[in-house]
């Protein structure tokens, strides 16, 4: 991986909200085709960090390099155009609308009829079916409502949509936190497929097991600071868990719970 250049580099990012220091110098880089897991407990600054990456927040200090160029995103649209897509746990799909209408929401394929912009249903339906098949989701038809899909399938639709529309960096904000075992493994499999297409994936989670399943590298955030980045195979789940908890106090707790945390 050393010969490749990172697609996005965040150097020493600080973000202050008034007197609150949300991020106190965080550095993370993401290579194309890797899954970089960002771990941290609630309040560690994960959300602030990815919002900085996706252009929602401007960093108070620090540098963002995208494809080697210094970047300054004015708003999320800028970041999206550059190829940074965020898939939120909620707020991604509209249940009452069909899969194909959802897939192309905001990026509708256009067929011109004079000045009128028609929605090219034929194209949309065909592409939706192809993309869903690639991801292993069997649709009854492209007009099936998203509401009939499971939570994991919805995440998968959202992910494949982002990739279809040219995402180079895919930020997944806790995609597995509300899912069951089977659905989680579907989403993890989707992440694996996307990574193999050369997309850089930033996978936010606080579940160490989910991170271990697909991650290439792991960065742990704690109280607004990075506790270092580890490469797959160099760190054990227990060590990650301890770093997230920010100390040893969990170790004794974990012992009394029989290692179930």
């Amino acid at each position: 991986m050393a010969d490749r250049k990172p697609i996005i580099q965040m150097k020493d990012i600080q973000k202050h909200f008034g007197s609150v220091i949300a991020l106190a110098g965080v550095s993370v880089d993401v290579f194309p085709g890797e899954c970089h897991c960002l771990l941290g407990d609630n309040g560690a600054g994960k959300s602030t960090f990815i919002k900085t990456m996706s252009g929602v927040h401007k960093p108070t200090s620090g540098e963002i390099h995208f494809e080697g160029q210094p970047m300054n995103f004015a708003d999320p649209r800028d970041a999206m155009t550059a190829g940074i897509a965020t898939v939120h746990q909620h707020l991604a799909m509209i249940p009452l609308m069909s899969v194909s209408r959802n897939f192309f929401m905001g990026n509708e394929p256009i067929k011109k009829l004079g000045p009128i912009k028609l929605f090219d249903h034929e194209y949309a339906n065909r592409v939706t079916m192809e993309e869903m098949k690639k991801m292993g989701i069997n649709l009854r038809g492209p007009d099936q409502a998203v509401g009939t899909l499971s939570g994991g399938e919805r995440q998968t639709v959202a992910i494949s949509r982002a990739v279809h529309f040219g995402a180079k960096v895919l930020i997944l904000d806790e995609p597995t936190s509300a899912l069951g075992v089977r659905q989680t493994s579907n989403v993890l499999a989707t992440i694996d497929k996307v990574r193999k297409q050369g997309v850089g994936v930033v996978f936010i989670t606080h579940n160490v097991r989910h991170a271990m399943a697909v991650g290439d590298r792991y960065t742990v955030l704690n109280r607004g600071q990075t506790l270092g980045t580890a490469v797959r195979g160099e760190i054990t789940p227990e060590e990650l868990q301890d770093m997230m908890a920010g100390g040893q106090e969990l170790a004794s707790l974990e012992g009394s719970l029989g290692g179930t945390v």
């Binding site: 649209r77 999206m80 965020t86 939120h88 707020l91 991604a92 799909m93 509209i94 249940p95 009452l96 609308m97 209408r101 192309f104 929401m105 905001g106 990026n107 509708e108 256009i110 009128i116 912009k117 028609l118 929605f119 249903h121």
Partner: peptide
Amino acid sequence: TKTQFGNWIFASGGDAEAARNSGV
């Protein structure tokens, strides 16, 4: 049913926040 704007109408009413996130 047939236009791009129609898709935006459905999206805006279905979930305004999700629609905004997708650029509607």
